[in-house]
Protein backbone atom coordinates (compact mmCIF):
# COMPACT_ATOMS: atom_id res chain seq x y z
CA UNK A 1 0.00 0.00 0.00
CA UNK A 2 1.70 3.17 -1.11
CA UNK A 3 -1.10 5.60 -0.31
CA UNK A 4 -3.21 5.14 2.80
CA UNK A 5 -5.85 7.70 3.63
CA UNK A 6 -7.74 7.10 6.86
CA UNK A 7 -10.82 9.03 7.90
CA UNK A 8 -9.70 12.20 6.17
CA UNK A 9 -11.92 15.17 7.00
CA UNK A 10 -11.25 18.59 5.51
CA UNK A 11 -13.18 21.66 6.48
CA UNK A 12 -13.47 24.98 4.66
CA UNK A 13 -14.22 27.94 6.86
CA UNK A 14 -14.21 28.42 10.61
CA UNK A 15 -14.58 25.61 13.13
CA UNK A 16 -18.18 24.68 13.82
CA UNK A 17 -19.73 26.72 11.01
CA UNK A 18 -17.61 25.68 8.04
CA UNK A 19 -18.32 23.22 5.28
CA UNK A 20 -16.91 19.71 5.31
CA UNK A 21 -15.76 19.25 1.73
CA UNK A 22 -14.22 15.88 2.55
CA UNK A 23 -15.81 13.85 5.30
CA UNK A 24 -14.21 10.71 6.74
CA UNK A 25 -12.74 9.49 3.48
CA UNK A 26 -10.54 6.38 3.53
CA UNK A 27 -8.62 5.16 0.50
CA UNK A 28 -5.93 2.56 -0.12
CA UNK A 29 -3.85 2.65 -3.25
CA UNK A 30 -1.59 -0.27 -4.16
CA UNK A 31 1.83 0.47 -5.52
CA UNK A 32 2.23 0.70 -9.28
CA UNK A 33 -1.42 0.92 -10.27
CA UNK A 34 -3.45 3.60 -11.96
CA UNK A 35 -6.09 4.58 -9.47
CA UNK A 36 -9.02 6.62 -10.70
CA UNK A 37 -11.12 8.92 -8.55
CA UNK A 38 -14.43 9.98 -10.09
CA UNK A 39 -16.53 12.78 -8.67
CA UNK A 40 -18.73 15.61 -9.81
CA UNK A 41 -18.44 19.20 -8.63
CA UNK A 42 -18.60 19.39 -4.86
CA UNK A 43 -17.52 15.78 -4.41
CA UNK A 44 -14.32 16.83 -2.67
CA UNK A 45 -12.03 15.24 -5.24
CA UNK A 46 -9.77 18.25 -5.72
CA UNK A 47 -9.64 18.82 -1.98
CA UNK A 48 -8.36 15.28 -1.50
CA UNK A 49 -5.66 15.90 -4.11
CA UNK A 50 -4.57 19.10 -2.38
CA UNK A 51 -4.63 17.45 1.04
CA UNK A 52 -2.42 14.63 -0.26
CA UNK A 53 0.16 17.23 -1.27
CA UNK A 54 -0.21 19.25 1.92
CA UNK A 55 -1.36 22.11 -0.31
CA UNK A 56 -4.77 22.96 1.10
CA UNK A 57 -5.79 26.51 0.22
CA UNK A 58 -6.10 29.24 2.79
CA UNK A 59 -9.18 28.71 4.91
CA UNK A 60 -9.18 24.95 4.54
CA UNK A 61 -7.87 22.67 7.24
CA UNK A 62 -7.59 18.98 7.99
CA UNK A 63 -10.05 18.37 10.79
CA UNK A 64 -9.19 14.75 11.25
CA UNK A 65 -7.72 11.62 9.77
CA UNK A 66 -4.37 10.79 8.28
CA UNK A 67 -2.71 10.57 4.89
CA UNK A 68 0.32 8.38 4.53
CA UNK A 69 2.20 8.37 1.23
CA UNK A 70 5.11 5.96 0.91
CA UNK A 71 5.31 5.88 4.68
CA UNK A 72 5.32 9.67 5.05
CA UNK A 73 2.53 11.19 7.09
CA UNK A 74 1.39 14.32 5.26
CA UNK A 75 -1.06 15.82 7.72
CA UNK A 76 0.18 18.09 10.46
CA UNK A 77 3.51 18.75 8.74
CA UNK A 78 5.28 22.04 8.61
CA UNK A 79 5.95 23.62 5.23
CA UNK A 80 9.68 22.93 5.56
CA UNK A 81 9.07 19.22 6.11
CA UNK A 82 6.80 19.04 3.07
CA UNK A 83 9.33 20.62 0.73
CA UNK A 84 11.39 17.48 0.34
CA UNK A 85 8.24 15.36 0.05
CA UNK A 86 6.69 17.28 -2.83
CA UNK A 87 8.14 16.41 -6.17
CA UNK A 88 10.20 13.51 -4.79
CA UNK A 89 7.65 11.34 -3.05
CA UNK A 90 4.51 12.72 -4.66
CA UNK A 91 3.82 15.20 -7.45
CA UNK A 92 0.66 16.96 -8.52
CA UNK A 93 -0.49 18.01 -11.96
CA UNK A 94 -3.56 20.05 -11.36
CA UNK A 95 -6.46 21.39 -13.33
CA UNK A 96 -5.42 24.06 -15.81
CA UNK A 97 -1.81 23.48 -14.81
CA UNK A 98 -0.71 24.25 -18.33
CA UNK A 99 -1.54 27.89 -17.74
CA UNK A 100 0.84 27.96 -14.81
CA UNK A 101 4.03 27.77 -16.80
CA UNK A 102 6.23 30.80 -16.36
CA UNK A 103 5.90 32.67 -19.67
CA UNK A 104 9.46 33.99 -19.47
CA UNK A 105 11.23 30.69 -18.93
CA UNK A 106 12.27 28.08 -21.46
CA UNK A 107 10.46 24.78 -21.20
CA UNK A 108 13.54 22.75 -20.31
CA UNK A 109 14.52 25.21 -17.59
CA UNK A 110 11.10 24.98 -16.00
CA UNK A 111 11.27 21.22 -15.96
CA UNK A 112 14.76 21.29 -14.48
CA UNK A 113 13.66 23.75 -11.81
CA UNK A 114 12.22 21.06 -9.52
CA UNK A 115 15.58 19.30 -9.39
CA UNK A 116 17.46 22.50 -8.72
CA UNK A 117 15.04 23.61 -6.00
CA UNK A 118 15.50 20.29 -4.26
CA UNK A 119 19.27 20.58 -4.79
CA UNK A 120 19.17 17.07 -6.14
CA UNK A 121 21.91 17.69 -8.66
CA UNK A 122 23.90 20.34 -10.45
CA UNK A 123 22.63 22.52 -13.26
CA UNK A 124 24.09 20.45 -16.03
CA UNK A 125 22.70 17.18 -14.79
CA UNK A 126 19.36 18.81 -14.03
CA UNK A 127 19.07 20.00 -17.61
CA UNK A 128 19.98 16.56 -18.87
CA UNK A 129 17.37 14.89 -16.70
CA UNK A 130 14.81 17.53 -17.71
CA UNK A 131 15.39 16.70 -21.34
CA UNK A 132 15.02 13.01 -20.67
CA UNK A 133 11.80 13.70 -18.88
CA UNK A 134 10.51 15.83 -21.76
CA UNK A 135 11.40 13.08 -24.18
CA UNK A 136 9.52 10.61 -21.99
CA UNK A 137 6.31 12.64 -22.22
CA UNK A 138 6.71 12.90 -25.98
CA UNK A 139 8.25 16.34 -26.35
CA UNK A 140 11.27 16.16 -28.64
CA UNK A 141 14.35 18.28 -29.10
CA UNK A 142 12.60 20.95 -31.11
CA UNK A 143 10.52 22.13 -28.13
CA UNK A 144 13.10 21.98 -25.34
CA UNK A 145 14.25 25.53 -25.78
CA UNK A 146 10.89 27.08 -26.63
CA UNK A 147 8.81 29.36 -24.45
CA UNK A 148 5.32 28.40 -23.25
CA UNK A 149 3.44 30.66 -25.69
CA UNK A 150 5.00 28.74 -28.58
CA UNK A 151 3.35 25.50 -27.41
CA UNK A 152 -0.16 24.16 -27.91
CA UNK A 153 -2.35 23.38 -24.91
CA UNK A 154 -1.62 19.68 -25.13
CA UNK A 155 2.13 20.27 -25.31
CA UNK A 156 2.00 22.56 -22.29
CA UNK A 157 0.15 19.91 -20.34
CA UNK A 158 2.82 17.40 -21.35
CA UNK A 159 5.50 19.81 -20.18
CA UNK A 160 3.75 20.12 -16.82
CA UNK A 161 3.68 16.35 -16.52
CA UNK A 162 7.38 16.24 -17.40
CA UNK A 163 8.06 18.72 -14.61
CA UNK A 164 6.00 16.66 -12.20
CA UNK A 165 7.85 13.42 -12.92
CA UNK A 166 11.38 14.74 -13.42
CA UNK A 167 12.38 13.93 -9.84
CA UNK A 168 10.88 10.45 -10.28
CA UNK A 169 8.27 10.62 -7.55
CA UNK A 170 6.68 7.42 -6.29
CA UNK A 171 3.18 8.83 -6.75
CA UNK A 172 1.82 11.13 -9.45
CA UNK A 173 -1.50 12.79 -8.74
CA UNK A 174 -3.26 14.17 -11.82
CA UNK A 175 -6.29 16.31 -10.98
CA UNK A 176 -8.45 16.89 -14.08
CA UNK A 177 -5.36 16.79 -16.31
CA UNK A 178 -7.40 16.78 -19.50
CA UNK A 179 -10.05 19.40 -18.79
CA UNK A 180 -9.99 22.15 -21.42
CA UNK A 181 -8.09 19.97 -23.86
CA UNK A 182 -9.49 18.68 -27.13
CA UNK A 183 -10.96 15.22 -27.26
CA UNK A 184 -8.11 13.82 -29.32
CA UNK A 185 -5.51 15.37 -27.03
CA UNK A 186 -7.35 14.06 -23.97
CA UNK A 187 -6.85 10.45 -24.97
CA UNK A 188 -3.22 11.11 -25.65
CA UNK A 189 -2.67 12.58 -22.19
CA UNK A 190 -4.42 9.64 -20.56
CA UNK A 191 -2.31 7.25 -22.61
CA UNK A 192 0.74 9.10 -21.42
CA UNK A 193 -0.27 8.57 -17.79
CA UNK A 194 -0.58 4.84 -18.46
CA UNK A 195 2.84 4.79 -20.06
CA UNK A 196 4.38 6.53 -17.09
CA UNK A 197 2.96 3.87 -14.84
CA UNK A 198 4.38 1.15 -17.08
CA UNK A 199 7.78 2.67 -17.84
CA UNK A 200 8.60 4.17 -14.46
CA UNK A 201 6.55 1.90 -12.22
CA UNK A 202 4.97 5.03 -10.86
CA UNK A 203 1.68 4.95 -9.01
CA UNK A 204 -0.72 7.30 -10.77
CA UNK A 205 -3.87 8.74 -9.22
CA UNK A 206 -6.15 10.15 -11.89
CA UNK A 207 -8.89 12.43 -10.62
CA UNK A 208 -11.67 13.55 -12.94
CA UNK A 209 -15.36 14.25 -13.35
CA UNK A 210 -15.21 12.30 -16.61
CA UNK A 211 -16.20 8.75 -15.69
CA UNK A 212 -15.60 7.14 -19.12
CA UNK A 213 -12.18 8.76 -19.38
CA UNK A 214 -11.14 7.51 -15.93
CA UNK A 215 -12.51 4.11 -16.76
CA UNK A 216 -10.41 3.93 -19.93
CA UNK A 217 -7.23 4.32 -17.97
CA UNK A 218 -7.67 3.01 -14.45
CA UNK A 219 -7.10 -0.29 -12.73
CA UNK A 220 -9.17 0.60 -9.70
CA UNK A 221 -11.81 3.27 -9.32
CA UNK A 222 -13.19 5.15 -6.38
CA UNK A 223 -16.49 7.02 -6.71
CA UNK A 224 -17.02 10.11 -4.57
CA UNK A 225 -20.22 11.97 -3.82
CA UNK A 226 -20.66 15.00 -1.58
CA UNK A 227 -17.35 14.57 0.24
CA UNK A 228 -17.93 10.86 0.92
CA UNK A 229 -16.79 7.66 -0.78
CA UNK A 230 -19.60 5.72 -2.48
CA UNK A 231 -17.73 2.70 -3.60
CA UNK A 232 -14.31 1.35 -4.48
CA UNK A 233 -13.47 -1.55 -6.71
CA UNK A 234 -11.68 -2.73 -9.81
CA UNK A 235 -12.51 -0.86 -12.96
CA UNK A 236 -14.31 -3.76 -14.61
CA UNK A 237 -16.33 -4.57 -11.50
CA UNK A 238 -17.51 -1.03 -11.09
CA UNK A 239 -18.39 -0.54 -14.73
CA UNK A 240 -20.04 -3.93 -15.29
CA UNK A 241 -21.79 -4.30 -11.98
CA UNK A 242 -22.01 -1.09 -9.98
CA UNK A 243 -23.10 -1.62 -6.38
CA UNK A 244 -23.90 1.90 -5.26
CA UNK A 245 -27.05 3.49 -6.74
CA UNK A 246 -25.08 6.66 -7.46
CA UNK A 247 -22.50 4.76 -9.50
CA UNK A 248 -25.29 3.08 -11.42
CA UNK A 249 -26.95 6.43 -12.02
CA UNK A 250 -23.70 7.97 -13.19
CA UNK A 251 -23.08 5.10 -15.59
CA UNK A 252 -26.57 5.45 -17.03
CA UNK A 253 -26.36 9.19 -17.41
CA UNK A 254 -23.35 9.01 -19.70
CA UNK A 255 -24.17 9.54 -23.34
CA UNK A 256 -22.59 6.71 -25.25
CA UNK A 257 -21.58 6.98 -28.85
CA UNK A 258 -21.41 3.24 -29.41
CA UNK A 259 -24.66 1.98 -28.06
CA UNK A 260 -27.69 4.10 -28.66
CA UNK A 261 -29.77 3.92 -25.53
CA UNK A 262 -32.01 6.14 -23.53
CA UNK A 263 -29.91 7.99 -21.03
CA UNK A 264 -31.21 7.94 -17.52
CA UNK A 265 -30.61 10.81 -15.24
CA UNK A 266 -30.19 11.14 -11.55
CA UNK A 267 -33.09 13.23 -10.30
CA UNK A 268 -32.70 16.10 -7.88
CA UNK A 269 -29.95 18.57 -7.23
CA UNK A 270 -26.36 18.03 -6.03
CA UNK A 271 -25.95 17.94 -2.28
CA UNK A 272 -25.59 21.30 -0.56
CA UNK A 273 -22.57 20.73 1.66
CA UNK A 274 -23.49 23.56 3.99
CA UNK A 275 -26.68 21.67 4.82
CA UNK A 276 -25.98 17.99 4.16
CA UNK A 277 -28.90 15.62 4.74
CA UNK A 278 -28.91 13.35 7.77
CA UNK A 279 -27.50 9.93 7.08
CA UNK A 280 -26.60 9.03 3.51
CA UNK A 281 -25.86 12.11 1.45
CA UNK A 282 -27.17 10.60 -1.73
CA UNK A 283 -30.46 9.56 -0.17
CA UNK A 284 -32.54 12.55 -1.42
CA UNK A 285 -31.71 11.57 -5.02
CA UNK A 286 -31.66 7.81 -4.56
CA UNK A 287 -34.27 5.54 -6.11
CA UNK A 288 -33.55 2.74 -3.64
CA UNK A 289 -33.67 4.89 -0.51
CA UNK A 290 -35.06 3.22 2.59
CA UNK A 291 -36.05 4.60 5.94
CA UNK A 292 -32.86 3.44 7.62
CA UNK A 293 -30.76 5.42 5.12
CA UNK A 294 -31.36 8.59 7.13
CA UNK A 295 -29.70 6.87 10.09
CA UNK A 296 -26.81 5.58 8.00
CA UNK A 297 -23.48 6.10 9.74
CA UNK A 298 -21.36 5.47 6.65
CA UNK A 299 -20.23 1.97 7.49
CA UNK A 300 -18.53 0.23 4.62
CA UNK A 301 -19.66 -3.17 3.40
CA UNK A 302 -17.82 -5.65 1.27
CA UNK A 303 -20.36 -7.81 -0.51
CA UNK A 304 -17.72 -9.13 -2.88
CA UNK A 305 -14.01 -9.58 -2.35
CA UNK A 306 -11.95 -6.60 -3.40
CA UNK A 307 -14.91 -4.25 -3.32
CA UNK A 308 -16.15 -1.76 -0.80
CA UNK A 309 -19.47 0.00 -0.85
CA UNK A 310 -20.90 2.64 1.43
CA UNK A 311 -24.62 1.95 1.18
CA UNK A 312 -27.24 0.55 3.55
CA UNK A 313 -28.54 -1.81 0.87
CA UNK A 314 -25.57 -4.03 1.66
CA UNK A 315 -25.92 -4.07 5.41
CA UNK A 316 -27.04 -7.70 5.50
CA UNK A 317 -25.33 -10.23 7.80
CA UNK A 318 -21.59 -10.50 7.14
CA UNK A 319 -21.89 -7.72 4.67
CA UNK A 320 -23.31 -10.00 2.02
CA UNK A 321 -25.67 -8.74 -0.59
CA UNK A 322 -29.18 -9.20 0.64
CA UNK A 323 -30.88 -6.25 -0.94
Amino acid sequence: MIVEIRGLTVRYGPEGSGVRAVDHVSLDVDEGILYGIVGESGSGKSTIAMAMMGLLPHGASVEGGSISIDGFEVTGRKESQLASFRGRTASLVFQGAMNNLNPLMRIEDQVAETLLLHRMCGRKEALERARRSLELVGLGKQVWRLYPHELSGGMKQRAMIAAAVVAEPRVLIADEPTTALDVITQVQIVNLLRQLREKLGMTVILISHDFPLVSEASDRICILYGGKVCEVGSNSHIVRKPLHPYTAGLLNSVVSLRERREIMTIPGEPVDLSRPPKGCRFMPRCGSAMEKCSLYAYDSYSPEPGRLVYCEMYSGPDGNTEA
Partner: peptide, 11 residues
Amino acid sequence: IESVPSFSRGD
Protein backbone atom coordinates in the same frame (compact mmCIF):
# COMPACT_ATOMS: atom_id res chain seq x y z
CA ILE B 1 -14.95 9.30 -32.80
CA GLU B 2 -12.05 7.02 -31.99
CA SER B 3 -11.02 9.36 -29.20
CA VAL B 4 -14.31 9.35 -27.37
CA PRO B 5 -13.72 7.44 -24.15
CA SER B 6 -16.10 4.62 -23.37
CA PHE B 7 -16.76 2.08 -20.67
CA SER B 8 -16.81 -0.85 -23.03
CA ARG B 9 -13.07 -0.63 -23.37
CA GLY B 10 -12.76 -0.23 -19.65
CA ASP B 11 -10.35 -2.96 -18.71
